[in-house]
Structures are given as C-alpha cells and as structure tokens.
C-alpha cells in the first residue's frame, strides 16, 4: 500500500457494482454510478471484515465522493440539480477513464 491515497480531489471515479451478501457500507443506490472525489477522509479498518470479528487490517482509505443527483437517479426520478456525497472505501472505487475532472461543490 502506498503512503498517499491513490485518488485525489476532483478525480472522476466510478463505483464498482457487485452484490455481496455480507455486510458492506456501499449503498445500493450508488453502485455503478459516476462521481468525483471530494477528498480522502483517512484510513479505517475495513467494516466488511469488522462485521465478522476480523481486524480489517491493513486499514483502507475512505473517500468522500460527490455525485450529481441526475446521474444517480435519472432526471425523471429526482428533483433537479443537487448533489449527493457519500463516503466510500477505496476497494469500491475505480478511476473513471471516460469522466472529466471537476471541482467538487
């Protein structure tokens, strides 16, 4: 593991898909959605292991990630023009090659 978080503010990311049957902190409504990193929030033991009495080490980087609401829900299902942020662990995020860098709100 490198000393610095791999993702930085403004970097476009996509949330991994997947349906683990075990505990995880990635809400279903954000899986597969595209956003940008607001900032790294530090390293924490992996809750997916802690939930089963394992140490969850090494700790994983947690990122605050920002999404446009229309990207998350589709324009017809939500109110117009607002953003949602959520805190997601590094192993649920990958760089979004098709995305554009932008400054989070």
């Amino acid at each position: 593991m490198s000393a610095l978080p791999a993702l930085v503010s403004g970097m476009p990311v996509v949330v991994r898909t997947g349906e683990p049957l075990t505990h995880c902190r990635t809400p279903h409504y954000l899986r597969g959605k595209r956003g940008v990193v607001v900032r790294p929030l530090g390293r924490y033991p992996d809750p997916e292991a802690l939930a089963y009495h394992k140490p969850g080490l090494p700790p994983r980087v947690l990122y605050q990630v920002e999404f446009e609401a229309a990207e998350v829900w589709g324009e017809r299902l939500c109110e117009p023009s607002y953003r949602i942020t959520a805190d997601l662990f590094e192993h649920w995020l990958e760089p979004d090659a098709a995305g554009h860098r932008r400054s989070p709100a």
Partner: peptide, 12 residues
C-alpha cells in the same frame, strides 16, 4: 441556492 445531501455511510 445549491444543495448537497451528505450521506454519512462510514466512519466520518
């Protein structure tokens, strides 16, 4: 006025 909904999903 813009809105950001902050979903606290983990340790923060």
């Amino acid at each position: 006025r813009e809105i950001t909904v902050v979903d606290s999903t983990a340790d923060m």
